[in-house]
Design a protein around this nucleic acid. Sequence first.
DNA 1: GAAAGTGTTGAAAG
DNA 2: TCTTTCAACACTTT
Length: 272
Amino acid sequence: MPELPEVQAVVNHYKPVFLKQKIERISNPNSYSKVFATHTLPKLNKNVGGQLIKDVFRRGKYIVLQTEKGYLCIHLRMTGQLQEGLDSFVADKHCSFAIHLNTGKTIYFKDYRKFGRLYYYSTLDTLNAKLGVEPFSTEFSFVYVAGILKKSTGMIKPLLLNQKYIAGLGNIYVDEALWLAKIHPKKKSNSISKTKVKVLTRSIPDILKKAIDFNGTTIINFSYGNEVPGDFKQFLNVFGKEGSSCPRCNRPIKKMYVAQRGTHICPYCQRL
DNA sequence: GAAAGTGTTGAAAG
DNA sequence: TCTTTCAACACTTT
């Protein structure tokens, strides 16, 4: 269930596969038509059929294939995976779409929970309108983060999960970043000290960068391509570590729920 | 065997 | 407008 580093790992893996290839057509092996979020399949194929893939990149948690005319955008949601091969039984059941390239090669989108979606836009305006700043961009600064926190009276964790402020963070890396900055996830956003906001601002790109270096985190079933898992799990400090000791103070990590999301904290390091 | 849990998102409800 | 809740779905764990 991929966040920014996992999506980036997928992009890094598939960019050479897609780049400078022509899309022949898109198919819908398991007939789950809801996967097509912006166009019906025939209309989608009218737009992308015969189009050259000019660039492949990530925006938030979206994988973007830039063609000559527009942008084909893939969102993996919880369980989406791209694979270069798939047996027909699995394809019939779990493959919501497949991208057939002119070379005869096919890239399959396998998604057993069917939350993943495929979008097509003529410009990136729609995505840019709903996504906030990229954590690796120059706009992502102490001033920006302090600005959005100051305006919010709600809890910090749901704010960080909200893609319209910062694009790409999800449950794992929010827990990790809050632990690094010693901030309790239920702390009111506008009540966090300047010092901690500074640490948080640095911690977010730091942790994401490290996770990308290891192709992301696989907890249950993420793979960046062809069933290969990410290797960052071993470096997590709190996520999924309930009961084990805090790497900083040795006290036990606790699991709690914040905004209906499983949340891991060190109750000593992160206090309200 | 039923119920709860899972890394996401956005629509609906408050 | 903002924040909180819940449904979309399938599989595993309790």
